[in-house]
C-alpha cells in the first residue's frame, strides 16, 4: 500500500505513463497477438497478452465511449496497478494488486485487448516478484 502511494505521488512516473499510454505504440493483442511471446519487464502489451500471475501498471485504454467509461469506473484506469489472476475466458484481473486493497474484474477478450499494460515483473504479487 505504501509502495502504491509512492507511485501515485511520483510525477515523473506519471509523465512516463502518460506518454506510454497515448503516444507509445502499445503492443496490444488487437493486431493478431503481435505482443504475445515477448518477455521482460517494461514492455507494454495488451492485457490479453499477459501471463497469469504477471503484474503491471495500466498505461492506456484504447476502448472508446461507454466501454472506456465503464472500465475506468471499475478501476481500470491509467496508472493503476494490476495483477492478472487468470488469462483467457474470461481475463480476471486484480486492480490494486499487492500495493493496496484490490477489486477483481472479469473481462471478455475484446475488452482485455483494449487495456495496455506495462508489465513489471518485480512488483510484489507477480509470478517473478514476491510469492503469492
Amino acid at each position: 500500500m505504501a509502495e502504491q502511494t509512492r507511485d501515485n505521488q511520483n510525477p515523473t512516473r506519471k509523465d512516463q505513463a502518460g506518454q506510454a499510454g497515448h503516444a507509445g505504440e502499445p503492443e496490444g493483442c488487437g493486431r493478431e497477438n503481435a505482443c504475445c511471446g515477448k518477455q521482460g519487464s517494461g514492455r507494454i502489451v495488451g492485457l490479453c497478452c499477459m501471463e497469469s500471475g504477471e503484474c503491471g501498471i495500466i498505461r492506456g485504454l484504447s476502448a472508446a465511449g461507454a466501454d472506456a467509461a465503464y472500465l475506468r469506473a471499475l478501476g481500470l484506469r491509467p496508472n493503476q496497478r494490476i495483477r492478472l489472476c487468470r488469462a483467457n475466458g474470461p481475463w480476471i484481473v486484480e486492480v490494486g494488486c499487492q500495493g493496496g486493497p484490490a477489486s477483481r474484474i472479469g473481462l471478455a477478450r475484446e475488452l482485455a485487448e483494449q487495456v495496455q499494460v506495462e508489465v513489471n515483473e518485480s512488483l510484489p504479487g507477480s509470478v517473478n516478484g514476491a510469492a503469492l
Binding site: 505504501a2 502504491q4 499487492q98 500495493g99 493496496g100 486493497p101 484490490a102 477483481r104
Partner: peptide, 27 residues
C-alpha cells in the same frame, strides 16, 4: 492521493488466496 494519505504507514494487505483458488476452479 486521498487514499494514499489514509493508508500511509500501514502494512500491505494480505493476498486473497481463497478467491484466487476458487476462481481457478469456477472459471
Amino acid at each position: 492521493e486521498l487514499y494514499a494519505q489514509m493508508a500511509a504507514g500501514t502494512a500491505p494487505p494480505l493476498p486473497d488466496t481463497l478467491t484466487d483458488r476458487l476462481d481457478r476452479a469456477f472459471t
